[in-house]
Design a protein around this nucleic acid. Structure first.
Length: 378
RNA sequence: GGGGGUGUGGCAGAGUGGUCUAAUGCACCAGACUGUAAAUCUGGCGGGCUUGCCCUUCGGUGGUUCAAAUCCAUCCGCCCCCA
C-alpha cells in the first residue's frame, strides 16, 4: 500500500518540464496536473457539494485557521473529519494558517515561536505555532496538510525575505517533528513550503533545506502576492529543478488560466486558487473565448450561453441575458451559477492540459487555447 | 371656492445671495480581484477641447444685484388641508 500523498510520475513532456502523474490518497487518487478549488471554511463558497462533484473536481482546500476559529476543531473531529462534516468524502488539503500571516497582517504579530492572531471574528487572541497548526490540521483530518510558514508580502526587502525564509525553515522542522509524533502519516501527508520571495539565492537555499528534510510533497509559497509575472515564473524555474522528481510540486494560491499553463510548463503538478469563486461572485466569468464581466451592458440582450463549450449548469440552463439580470437584481442564484461555471472552466482546462500531455502535445494545446482565449470579439 | 406648501442632475434628496457642475444614496458605465477578514473594492457618471480652461445646467419667462439654484414678479405643474 502506498504512503498517503505519494506521487507516481506517469509521463514527462518531451517539449518542456511538464509532467503527467498521479497522487495517491486514502480517499482516492488524483490525476495531475490538478486544479484544487478553495473552500476556506470547509465549503467552496456558493457551491453545493453535489454540484462540485459533478464539476470533476478531485480535491478541494480548506483553511485550518478559519476552521479552528469556527466551528472549532472539536466539532469537526466529532463529525468524523472535514470530509464527513461537509459530505465531500473525497481528498482534501488544508492550508496551515501561514497565508493568514500575510492576509491578516494588520491583526497579527510574528514571533520566533509562531504568530499571534487577533480573531477577525471577535477580536480574541490566538497563538499559532508550528505545533499548534499540526494539531489543528490533524484534528481537521484533511488528506494533505501543509507546514506552518510565513507567506511574506511583496515587495519584501532581501533582509526581510531572508529572515522570513529562515523562520519558515525552522517552523518546517518543528512541523515535521510534531507531525511524525504519532501515526497520522498513515492517513495524512505533510508538504513542505519553499519561501524566499523573489530572490533566487534564497529560493535555492529554501528548496535545498526543505528537500533535505524529506517531506511527502513540496509547495512553492509566497507567489502571486503582487509580484510581476516574470518573477513568479522565474521562481518556479529556479526551484523546480531542485525538487525530487518522484514527489508532487504544488504552486500555492495560483491562479489565472495563464498561470496554470505557465506553471505546468515549468513542472508544477498542483494549483489552488480562489479566483474562480471570488471572481464569479464579482461577475467575472472565464470562457474559452476569454474573460468577460457578465454584469456589463453588452450582455443585457445576449441570449446565448456563457460558453457554448461548457457543460456546467449555468451554461446548460441559462443565457447571458438571464445571468446578467440575476447579477443586476442581486439574486443570490448568480453567486452559485457563476462560481460553479468558473470551477468547471478551471477543471476543464486542467483536463485539456492532461490530455495534451498524454499526447505529448503541450505547446500545440497551449497555442490553441490562447488563440481562442485572446481573440474574443465583443 | 378658500388657505398652505412645493418644483434641484436618470430617481430620491441636501443646498436658500458669491467658496455650486451643485453634498449624499440609488441607478447607470467600466475596471480590479491569485494558499478567501471580499456577494468586495476602485474609478467614472452635462458638453467641448489645447486637460487647464471654456461653454451649458437647479420648472418657464422677465427682473433686482458687481454676483442668483438661492431674492422679486408672473406663468405653468404637483401636493396637502378646509369647504
Amino acid at each position: 500500500m502506498s504512503e498517503c500523498g505519494s506521487y507516481t510520475l506517469l509521463k514527462k513532456s518531451s517539449q518542456c518540464r511538464a509532467r503527467l502523474g498521479r497522487l495517491y490518497t486514502a480517499r482516492g487518487n488524483i490525476d495531475t496536473p490538478v486544479f484544487m478549488p478553495v473552500g476556506t471554511q470547509g465549503t467552496v463558497k456558493g457551491v453545493a457539494t453535489e454540484y462540485l462533484k459533478e464539476s470533476g473536481a478531485q480535491i478541494i482546500l480548506a483553511n485550518s485557521y478559519h476552521l479552528y476559529l469556527r466551528p472549532g476543531t472539536e466539532i469537526i473531529k466529532r463529525a468524523g473529519g472535514i470530509q464527513e462534516f461537509n459530505s465531500w468524502r473525497k481528498p482534501m488539503l488544508t492550508d496551515s494558517g501561514g497565508f493568514q500571516i500575510f492576509s491578516l497582517n494588520e491583526i497579527r504579530k510574528i514571533k520566533e515561536d509562531g504568530a499571534q492572531f487577533q480573531s477577525h471574528i471577535d477580536g480574541s487572541r490566538h497563538f499559532f505555532t508550528p505545533e499548534k497548526s499540526m494539531q489543528v490540521q490533524k484534528d481537521i483530518g484533511a488528506d494533505i496538510i501543509m507546514c506552518f510558514d510565513e507567506c511574506a508580502p511583496y515587495p519584501a526587502s532581501y533582509e526581510y525575505a531572508k529572515n522570513s525564509m529562515e523562520l519558515s525553515l525552522k517552523w518546517a522542522a518543528k512541523c515535521k517533528d510534531e507531525f511524525y509524533k504519532d501515526d497520522a502519516r498513515l492517513k495524512q501527508a505533510l508538504f513542505g513550503i519553499i519561501q524566499g520571495s523573489v530572490y533566487d539565492d534564497l529560493r535555492k537555499i529554501s528548496a535545498q533545506k526543505m528537500t533535505e528534510m524529506d517531506f511527502t510533497g513540496y509547495a512553492i509559497g509566497g507567489v502571486s502576492v503582487g509580484e510581476p509575472r516574470e518573477d513568479k515564473e522565474r521562481v518556479i524555474e529556479v526551484v523546480e529543478p531542485l525538487l525530487p522528481e518522484n514527489k508532487a510540486r504544488y504552486l500555492m494560491g495560483v491562479g489565472m488560466p495563464e498561470d496554470l499553463w505557465e506553471g505546468v510548463q515549468r513542472g508544477i503538478d498542483m494549483f489552488d486558487c480562489v479566483i474562480p469563486t471570488r471572481n464569479g461572485r464579482n461577475g467575472q466569468v472565464f470562457t474559452s473565448l476569454g474573460k468577460l464581466n457578465i454584469r456589463n451592458a453588452e450582455f443585457r440582450q445576449d441570449f446565448t450561453p456563457l460558453d457554448p463549450q461548457c457543460a456546467c449548469p449555468a451554461c446548460k440552463g441559462y443565457t447571458k441575458a438571464y445571468l446578467n439580470h440575476l447579477v443586476r437584481a442581486q439574486e443570490s442564484l448568480y453567486l452559485s451559477l457563476l462560481s460553479l461555471h468558473n470551477i468547471y472552466f478551471m477543471i476543464n482546462l486542467m483536463e485539456k492540459i492532461r490530455k495534451a500531455l498524454e499526447n505529448d502535445s503541450f505547446f500545440e494545446a497551449k497555442e490553441e487555447f490562447f488563440r481562442k482565449y485572446y481573440n474574443r470579439k465583443s
